[in-house]
Structures are given as C-alpha cells and as structure tokens.
Amino acid sequence: MSITLKLIWAFISLGVVTVWGLTLNGIVQKIFARVQGRLGPPVWQPFIDIIKNNAKRTAITHGIMFYLGPVFRIAGGIGTYMFIPVIFGSVYFSNFSMSGDVLLVMYFIFFGQLGMALGAGEGGHPYSAVAVSRGLAQMTAFEVPFALSVISLVAQYGTLNITEIIAAQQGGFLQWTLFTNPLAVIAAMISMLGMNMYNPFSVVIAPQEIPIGPPTEYHSSFLGMLATNRGIFAGAKLILFMNLFFGGATNLFSLMLKTFWIYMFSVFVGAAYPRFRTEDSIRFFLKYPTAIGIISILLFTL
C-alpha cells in the first residue's frame, strides 16, 4: 500500500474511532444519569460540547508549554491509536502498527500524559500539580498489574506483536485470552479501572476537591482538544484491551460490540463504588491485582 493511501486510511480510521469514542462517552454519561435516576444528556452531547469549546471567542495562555499541553495529549492519544492494529486482517485498519509492538503502545500512552502534566504544570495552578502528582502516583501502581498481564501474555503466546497476539486468539471465543489466561485478564481489567479514572480511582480529577485536576486552567479550544482526545484515547485503550484479551475484531461491528462491553465494565464499577484515596488505591493495585498478575505469569512459566 502506498504511503499516501496508508495516510488516508489512517485518517479514516482515526475519524471512526473519534466518533465511536465520543459516542461511547455520551452513552456513558447517559448510563451514569440513569443510574442516578436522571434522563441524562443526549448521546451526542460530547460533540456539542466540543463544538462549543472550540467556538469560544477568548482564550488565555500561561506559556508555551501550557499551549502545547493539549497538543501533547491528543498526539499521545492519536499516536497510541496509530500504533494499534484496529481490525484484525484488515490492511486498511491496521494504522501504523508495524512501527512497534505492544511495548511501544504501552509507552506511547505516557507521551500524552507527560505532555499534559507539563502543560498543566505551567498553568501555575496548585491543584493541577496536586492532581498530576496523584495521577502519576496512581499510574505507577495500576500499570504494574497491566504490565504483569502483558508479560503473562508473552509467556503464553511468545510474542509482543499485537497482531500475532490476536492471531493466536482466533478460532472461537474459547481461544480468547479471557478464557485461556483468565488471571491475566482479571489483573488487566482491574488495572483498566485505574486507567479510565472512573470511581473508585477518580481521585485525580476529584471535582469537589481539586476542581477537576490537571485541566483546571484549560478552557476553550484547549479543552475542546482534550475532550476530543477523551474519545480517541478511550477508543484506543479499549481496542488495545480487545486485541490483547478478547480476541480482537475482524470487522467494525464486532469491534463496537466488544469495546462497548469492555468499557461497560469500568462504567458499571464506576457507577457503583465510592472513591479511594490515593494511597489506598496504590495499596489496592499493588496487592490483589499484582498478586493475580504474578500468579498468572507463574502459571505459564512453571
């Protein structure tokens, strides 16, 4: 495939995931509202919010890094997505996944987070820094079970290549990692609760305590960009999880179905639980999920 065509398909696939991710966000808001006995906003509300934010007439900036923070963030989201093959077997929806393996994806996730943290830092608001410190602290903890479960996959499949991991799961749903390596999946799914930052791990944005955390100073099109990234990044993470643990997707429909239900897991948990403090969530992640992850590795090595 020529590089131009590749780029065009990458854009198309990016558009798809953005729309799907934002829709998912809308659905999530709806679900939360219903859990609380409300009607909730329309499913397309995230789109309107993004338009409105981009349409703000004024904006302020605290400096160059503040300005670039959202750019880093969305570049991290898009980049993460770009390094994941979206639909198994499809040359059109494989993005630039040939650039590297799952390690690249795991580390590229940090790109956006780091950039955002820097931007928020230059905002000069103490709450931004407080939230970043919470976020980073929590991140170190929840990445451990996730990393362990990825390592467990390596022990299981002998590869870091995402496409190969999906390929190994083909042939009926019983071949999914979910069933062949359930412990690793449990560890990873718990770690996903932390990644998605819904309750009980929402201390980072804690709106009532440190007004919404890192983006406290962000507004207008900056915020619009961050909101767009919420869609892309959520989509990318879900697709990654789907690829690693739920057999991947061979078409767009099964992609939507699977990612929807993967997402619903953390949404349901988030809707039902109260919030952990930072040190509690660190302790939590480093206890049970980590132990489960280690056991899942040991099962495949011994």
Partner: peptide, 12 residues
C-alpha cells in the same frame, strides 16, 4: 435534571 438540556455544573 438540567443535564438533559446539555447543562452541567463546572467547578472552574
């Protein structure tokens, strides 16, 4: 439930 009108409180 004003959220159905697209309204929501923002802390900042």
């Amino acid at each position: 439930d004003i959220s159905r009108l697209g309204m929501q409180p923002r802390p900042t």
